[in-house]
């Protein structure tokens, strides 16, 4: 297999976007990067630039204003790309389902590959979600993880 396909699996660069979440999952995503969980040991690097990213990690329910931003970010990420919806409200709207400005889960706007439930999702679950996304990506590229 090619060097690019291997590298993408061995060192995926992720970008985190917060829709309109309560922050709970966002700080758990950040906590994944810090010494106790330290996802960098798996080669996972957090990026601020969508054009550098392979995996988009989205937290929180989509509201009417972030829908456009989220779609824009998704389109900027070069393929093949994976989307992970983190947290109960990212997957379905959760506790905010009857709020007037909330559209629902991330999948209302962009296709989602992996759903990580939990309110707030634990860092272990988020790391597990990234691994699941990589397995999916490996299958898509026809290479072994």
């Amino acid at each position: 297999m090619g060097i690019i396909a291997t590298s993408r699996l061995k060192s995926p660069w992720i970008m985190h976007f917060d829709n309109s979440s309560c922050n709970g999952c966002d700080i758990e995503v950040l906590a994944c990067l810090t010494p106790l969980y330290d996802v960098e040991r798996f080669g996972i690097v957090n990026m601020g630039n969508p054009k550098h990213a392979d995996v988009l990690v989205v937290t929180g329910p989509v509201n009417r204003r972030t829908a456009r931003v989220l779609k824009n970010l998704y389109e900027q990420i070069p393929g093949p790309k994976m989307v992970i919806a983190v947290g109960t409200c990212g997957t379905s709207g959760g506790v905010f389902h009857n709020c007037y400005n909330v559209l629902g889960g991330v999948d209302k706007v962009i296709p989602v590959d992996v759903y990580v439930p939990g309110c707030a999702a634990r860092p272990e679950a988020i790391i597990d979600g990234v691994v699941l996304a990589l397995q999916k990506l490996a299958k898509l590229q026809g290479v072994a993880l």
């Binding site: 829709n19 309109s20 509201n63 204003r65 972030t66 931003v69 709020c99 007037y100």
Partner: peptide
């Protein structure tokens, strides 16, 4: 602002 507005007070 407004990127995080959900409408919790109404809910």
């Amino acid at each position: 602002i407004g990127y995080g507005h959900r409408g919790i007070e109404k809910a």
